[in-house]
């Protein structure tokens, strides 16, 4: 029960961060109204969690609430947004996030003891153990015999991103082809609206974080619809890992839009129950999403291909 409450709170925090990314991307000014319906649509969730996210933002003086008028933005500049995001990340689970972020940025090594983390973050041992428990629940760390904890592979290098894509190519089409694949049409509609909204952004204004949030949501949705519980579990865990550790600002605007359009085509096929076609479209989508840029190039010599270096 406690675990469920913690997860719900965490989802609301993530949603609050998403709301802030949207206000920033839309260039919203201080004093501007945040309509619940528009944000529910933009985030692909119902109004109830949006209200919870707004409430978190209000509690942190990022939004204000006016009787019979709703929520209004209290910040405006990029710096104020950055500060607000920092504030949110400083809330519950911040230590787990910091540990994960430090690992993804190669500040800490692959194997850590709780004592080393206590020293690094200057927090109590119980706080560290709680954070490790959260990360363990997400499948990001595992306890070794003794007192050490080991990070599992994360998406922090071109090689691991390639491996992730290969893993997904194996499972995601199969997730669609399971006989008991069952789609939540309402949620599909919300996702569709969310992607349409991103596609309406002016050229060059789609940020990777906005894209990634929708992308992982779409692929998690496909996993959730699958009738095979093992495929579903493996994919959902992997998409959580992608959401928290994958960073790739190299994808040009054209490909981000193309990728969203491919999501919409897959939804079209699923809605018309053309599962074979949707699975094939998923293969095509994932193959096109592979970064093929060489790792290094120099005049006169063959470019260094992607993959593990010897």
């Amino acid at each position: 029960m406690t675990e469920t409450r913690r997860k719900t709170k965490q989802n609301h925090l993530l949603l609050a961060q998403k709301v802030l990314h949207i206000t920033l991307e839309r260039g919203m000014r201080a004093g501007e109204h945040l309509p619940e319906q528009a944000f529910s649509r933009a985030c692909g969730v119902s109004r109830t969690p949006i209200r919870s996210a707004f409430k978190i933002l209000e509690n942190n003086s990022i939004l204000s609430w006016r009787e019979e008028a709703g929520y209004f933005l209290e910040i405006e500049t990029r710096e104020e947004h950055a500060e607000a995001l920092r504030k949110l990340e400083g809330l519950e689970d911040s230590l787990a996030q910091r540990i994960l972020s430090d690992r993804a940025e190669r500040r800490i090594g692959e194997v850590q003891s709780a004592s080393a983390l206590v020293r690094r973050y200057n927090v109590s041992r119980s706080a560290v153990l709680n954070a490790l428990k959260i990360l363990s629940y997400e499948g990001i760390v595992s306890q070794l015999p003794g007192r050490s904890w080991a990070f599992q592979p994360i998406l922090d290098s071109p090689t691991s991103v390639d491996e992730s894509l290969a893993f997904r190519l194996t499972l995601e089409p199969q997730a669609i082809l399971t006989p008991s694949f069952s789609m939540d049409f309402k949620r599909a509609g919300l996702l569709r609206n969310q992607m349409d909204d991103i596609l309406k952004q002016p050229d060059g204004r789609i940020t990777f974080s906005a894209f990634q949030s929708t992308d992982t949501e779409f692929h998690s949705f496909i996993a959730e619809c699958s009738g095979n519980r093992f495929i579903r579990g493996a994919l959902l865990a992997h998409h959580r890992l992608r959401r928290t550790t994958q960073k790739d600002d190299s994808i040009p605007d054209f490909r981000l839009r193309q990728s969203l359009a491919e999501h919409l085509e897959i939804l079209d096929s699923l809605e018309s129950k053309q599962f074979d076609l949707a699975a094939d479209q998923m293969v095509l989508h994932l193959r096109k999403s592979k970064v093929r840029r060489p790792e290094a190039a120099n005049r006169g010599i063959p470019p260094m291909k992607r993959g593990k270096q010897t």
Binding site: E105, R106, I108, P158, R293, M304, Q309
Partner: peptide, 22 residues
Amino acid sequence: VGGFLESYDAVPDNVILGSWFP
């Protein structure tokens, strides 16, 4: 740091590495 991200550890708090930036 291009394709060599895995060559680094103990990265300072004021530094972020990436294999590609726009």
